[in-house]
């Protein structure tokens, strides 16, 4: 297992795309959060009529950053099929589940690292920009801080979310074995559902989509204000929905990887 891990780490490390994708994931997360908090103006939203969820908005970039993570995770699996490298890999390590587990561990580990950087960077950016827009303690918006329980939950949840996205990507990649198909599948699964929920006219269906679509459910944990009014599922239950998707994809991918010819 250790040698397999080392091999996968070397493969990932030596791909030029890995570094770029990690930079893109962190930068995308921070920049979108920075832009979202930068557009805020306390004049447009004053208590008691309107409470801005500054934590959630500062973490808005996770929705972009996850796209880079999806590519990273899929590219850990599928290109080996394109280049037939997979035959070499499996000849060197015949235990197929070991190979998949190593890939998963390496990709998830590096993703969690990038996620921590992205989330902390987003908070720092928001802390820098929010007071200038009038979101000060005097106006009822203390600076974002990890000592606040809900904010900490949102931060931890966002990191976990990105980790689960990596698992989902590896699983779908092993299942589909084709870069384009895997990326399209995961992105559609993540991004299409929120837009569909926006467009469906029937509120019951909206509720259902918000509850059971992986991105909406998983990111519910970012909500720190008006939780009862604006969320459709509990924070950890939502994370559980995403985890179920990721686990299903991983199990299906592992079965295919184990039993189908490479």
């Amino acid at each position: 297992m250790r040698r397999s891990l080392h091999a996968e780490w070397t493969k990932l490390r030596t791909l030029p795309s890995t570094g770029w994708l990690l930079v893109a994931a962190v930068a995308g997360t921070v920049l979108v959060g920075y832009a979202a908090t930068g557009t805020l103006d306390i004049e447009h939203c004053r208590a008691p009529w309107c409470y801005e969820d500054t934590t959630k908005l500062s973490l808005l970039g996770v929705r972009l950053g996850q796209a880079a993570i999806v590519i990273l995770a899929v590219l850990a699996v599928t290109p080996e099929y394109g280049t037939k490298m997979i035959k070499t890999t499996l000849a060197a390590t015949p235990g197929r589940l070991t190979v998949l587990a190593s890939k998963l561990a390496v990709v998830t580990g590096i993703t969690l690292l990038a996620a921590v950087l992205g989330v902390l960077g987003s908070f720092l950016a928001a802390r820098a920009v929010l007071p200038g827009n009038g979101f000060t303690s005097a106006n009822g918006y203390p600076p974002l801080s990890l000592s606040d329980e809900l904010t900490r939950r949102a931060a931890v949840g966002s990191v976990l979310y990105l980790g689960l996205i990596a698992v989902l990507g590896v699983g779908i990649g092993a299942l589909v074995r084709d870069t384009a198909a895997a990326v399209t599948t995961v992105l559609t699964l993540l991004f299409a559902a929120p837009v569909l929920a926006m467009l469906v006219t029937d509120p019951r269906w909206q509720h259902r989509i918000h509850r059971f679509a992986p991105m909406d459910a998983g990111l519910t944990i970012q909500t720190t204000r008006d939780i009862a009014a604006t969320t459709h599922i509990g924070a950890w239950a939502g994370m559980g929905v995403l985890a179920a998707y990721a686990a299903a994809a991983l199990v299906a991918g592992a079965l295919v990887f184990r039993f189908r010819d490479a």
């Binding site: 557009t39 447009h44 999806v70 990326v183 992105l187």
Partner: peptide, 27 residues
């Protein structure tokens, strides 16, 4: 690269819709 090109296009088509629904109307 398929993965990068697909992701870029999908993000450009869909992410603005998701983010836009959370921003002030002018933005």
């Amino acid at each position: 690269r398929s993965a990068a090109a697909i992701t870029t296009t999908v993000v450009l088509v869909i992410l603005p819709v998701i983010v836009g629904s959370m921003l002030p109307p002018s933005a």
